[in-house]
């Protein structure tokens, strides 16, 4: 029996979701895992304040170290993202990101799906620059310590995985909520509603990690490639793309999450995801 590429992907996504969130009993206890795995960053978006989480969030780690008195910049977290992104690009988003998998599940709800205007996809780069890179360093308290601005004001992943789960188990935390929580809940509602009608809404618009991996898509070792001598321009690859990419026109798009749907849909096997950068094929450098 041959297992389809899509089933393999779903299995890998399930495994990634599992190793990212194995401590499920903590959801009832209302506490978080405090073991050694928290020294390492998850390659995808997964809040480290989620009770079930096993690893640190790379975006949270980046802001925490950058905003600290001792360091000012996180070589460790940036290095992890750079190394993973240089090899895989946004393949991580398509296969290993727990919140990406969550969005794929939400998208299964049978509602009409829409494409997103291209300019909205630039919001994630602004969020990366302002809330992840600048504000944690520039906006400091009287002691000189910065705050993780993206986590504090934007991140719907943290609100869902950390905030709501911890508040469900610890009602005293819910009593301490204020205007910032209202803001974050509003962003979460917008995100979840967006995911119902737009595939991978969070990845397209709000994810700073996806923005970083997207920038590395263009140089990554492992990449989508098209052999234009085989392509018949049937448009099937563009039709099936969840990220609204036309692989024929831009096979190294920063939006491509390398999910492989276009590869499976191509009747001429003109598309492939590989490390083999051949001349005459879109993608070589």
């Amino acid at each position: 029996m041959k297992i389809s590429a899509n089933i393999k992907r779903r299995l890998l996504q399930t495994v990634a979701f599992g190793y990212s969130n194995p401590f499920l009993p903590n959801l009832i206890k209302g506490d978080i895992y405090k073991g050694k795995f928290k020294n390492f960053c998850n390659p995808g978006m997964n809040c480290y304040s989620c009770p079930a989480a096993s690893l640190a969030c790379p975006i949270g780690a980046m802001q925490a170290v950058s905003g600290s008195l001792d360091f000012g910049f996180s070589f460790y977290a940036v290095g992890i993202i750079l190394a993973i992104g240089a090899v895989c690009g946004r393949w991580i988003c398509g296969f290993l990101c727990p919140f990406g998998f969550f969005q794929d599940i939400i998208a299964k709800i049978p509602l009409p799906k829409f494409k997103i205007p291209k300019f909205l996809t630039y919001i994630k780069y602004i969020l990366l620059l302002v809330f992840v890179l600048i504000l944690p360093v520039a906006l400091t308290d009287y002691m000189g310590m910065g705050k993780p601005a993206y986590c504090e004001y934007i991140c719907p992943v943290g609100t869902l995985e950390g905030g709501l789960t911890l508040m469900a188990a610890n009602p005293e935390l819910a009593d301490a909520t204020g205007n910032i929580f209202l803001l974050k809940i509003s962003i979460l509602v917008i995100t979840l509603t967006g995911c119902l009608f737009i595939r991978r809404f969070f990845c397209k618009v709000l994810c700073p990690l996806g923005a970083l991996y997207g920038l590395l898509n263009k140089i990554s070792i492992f990449r989508l490639q098209i052999d234009k001598t085989l392509c018949i321009n049937c448009g099937k690859c563009a039709d099936v793309c969840d990220m609204d990419v036309d692989p024929v026109k831009e096979c190294m798009s920063s939006e491509c999450i390398r999910c492989g749907k276009c590869v499976s849909s191509c009747p001429k096997n003109a598309l492939k995801i590989s490390m083999d950068h051949r001349d005459g094929v879109c993608g070589p450098l």
Partner: peptide, 23 residues
């Protein structure tokens, strides 16, 4: 080498009030 991992660990094993919207 410059000890960033302990900072990441410290942040990740304590409930991040900012992350959950209480910061």
């Amino acid at each position: 080498l410059r000890g960033e991992v302990s900072m990441v660990f410290h942040k990740a094993v304590n409930i991040c009030l900012e992350c959950i919207g209480l910061g």
